[in-house]
């Protein structure tokens, strides 16, 4: 039965290496984005609050 077939793509070594490189870059970029938004949000909150409240 055709529905039972699991179609698979066999990655070559260079494809695996490239995918790993892309995954690391995406991970680092997303991590940096989170840090930037957290820190920038704290700075903006600190600026918008009255003196002494933070």
């Amino acid at each position: 039965m055709a529905d039972d077939k699991l179609e698979m793509i066999e990655l070559t070594e260079s494809q695996k290496k490239a995918r790993r490189s892309r995954s690391i870059a995406i991970g680092l970029a997303l991590g940096a984005l989170v840090v930037i938004f957290y820190v920038a949000t704290f700075i903006k909150f600190a600026h918008s609050m009255p003196n002494g409240s933070m």
Partner: peptide, 22 residues
């Protein structure tokens, strides 16, 4: 239970682009 099919078609080729290419 599940049959495996290897795909050799170029249309399904995975990217070899590295982070450096991007």
């Amino acid at each position: 239970l599940v049959e495996e099919t290897r795909i050799e078609d170029a249309a399904f080729r995975m990217s070899e682009a590295t982070a450096g290419d991007y």
